[in-house]
Write a protein that binds this DNA or RNA. Structure first.
Lengths: 243, 243
DNA sequence: CGGTGTGTTGACTCAGCTCAAGCGTTGTGG
DNA sequence: CCACAACGCTTGAGCTGAGTCAACACACCG
């Protein structure tokens, strides 16, 4: 995901340097697992950056149906674009955060072009991620969704030394992120393990055959990986279509 | 949608005044129906604003599955956030556009805070719309999707004098926007007509019972802005339902 | 007029959902 | 240190909402 920015394993956010400018205003908070960071319709007087742990941003429908529209991982900022507090942000497990007053952030952004540019770039990146996720939700099969998810998380989290991906969130959260049920998710994982694409090791998942996962995810392998090749051929427009 | 900015019927874009600043660079283009405005991987040297007609922004999967991630209506700007040209933009029917060189737009935005703020606000608005659409795609039933779509379009297009909504796009485009098939869409519309919520009049759709449509869409009545306008058919205790 | 494109309808299928049971792990209190 | 409750995950057995495929009914149009 977002491979055009030359995404590097273990990089934590788009531009940590720029976000570090906020540190002067920051204060630390810890939130227990399944507790809310903020709630729909709260006053939006601050925003946060994850230090350790994981936050899910959730939308509830009237009848209890739920959608997780983002997982926030260490280094990532949230609570700024969702200024209208349409969603609820909950800690997945015990999570530590840095909290910044909105006013201060906005004031600094006004006087600091690097920061405002960085925040703008972040917003655009989120928008791209959202569009990408929309195709996933609407047109991909369950297996494709799960494979995509594993690859996304592998990119964003990075694996521990034993080469296994350790997911901070539970099956129900993942399912609600992918728009499927936890049962379907579980079946898809089992099937992938049976095929040898992954190895399930309670709590951890080893991505054993990345190539196969990319195929399952519906990515063409050539499309992935190197941004270089991708931006190589800027085809000229379409003039024919313009009358 | 985006009702927090005091959305008014027939308002065409977020902030027409600000976008009008671009006019000095604009040149007019016409695109025939089903022709591309830009294509995935094109050079992104300009952006557009719809004058008349309608543009769909589309993503194609390898096997022909398709997702429409936005309809662009008169007054709306596009081609700026999709600078990476991940998508293809196609005219739904014959469409006229104003075309602005990206460089010029970006340069002006740098020196004109009102413009850059306006563009930033637009991006955030799109992000909110994307999040809202993600729940729709992942957790709503076909009927809910269709009802939501009709209400969204009614908001954005406004009806002609005969009180009927005239949709610029065909059933296949709508279906791909909602993540369903055109057959399912058609059945949902027929069913709504049978129930009296809408009246299908070849090409046009009259939203006959807005209250019922909001219910079908799964919106809570109080949540909607324009509550005043809808002379209520209180078919059941709304107040009771809210508390 | 036939021809083509767009929408509707019907019959059937199936991917994914629901409900329910089983099974490790983890935590807790005696 | 063990029993047992609670929880998260997996598995099984149907069920069903939406998809597929195919026919049909119209406009609209040269």
């Amino acid at each position: 995901m977002q491979s055009e920015v030359g995404f590097v394993r273990h990089t934590r956010a788009a531009d940590p340097d720029v976000l570090d400018l906020l540190e002067q205003f920051g204060s630390s908070v810890a939130v227990a697992g399944d507790k809310e960071v903020y709630r729909k319709d709260d006053a939006s007087d601050c925003c946060w950056r994850v230090t350790t742990g994981c936050v899910r941003r959730v939308e509830y429908l009237e009848d209890g149906r739920r959608h997780v529209n983002a997982f926030l991982l260490p280094g990532e900022l949230f609570g700024l674009v969702d200024a209208g507090r349409r969603f609820t942000a909950e800690a997945v497990s015990r999570t530590t955060l840095r909290c910044y007053p909105r006013k201060a952030v906005e004031a600094l952004a006004k006087s600091n072009p690097a920061l405002s540019a960085g925040l703008g770039a972040l917003t655009i990146k989120k928008l791209h991620h959202a569009y990408q996720h929309m195709v996933l939700l609407s047109r991909r099969t369950a297996a494709e969704k799960v494979a995509s998810f594993l690859l996304e998380m592998d990119q964003r989290i990075g694996r521990s030394k034993n080469n296994a991906l350790s997911l901070p969130m539970g099956r129900a959260d993942i399912a609600d992120y992918l728009g499927i049920t936890k049962e379907t998710l579980s079946r898809a994982l089992t099937e992938m393990a049976r095929q040898g694409s992954i190895i399930l090791d309670r709590g951890r998942i080893e991505l054993h055959d990345q190539f196969n996962l990319h195929e399952l995810a519906g990515h063409r392998y050539a499309e992935r990986r190197c941004a270089v090749r991708q931006q190589a051929q800027p085809r000229r427009s379409v003039v024919g279509a313009l009358l």
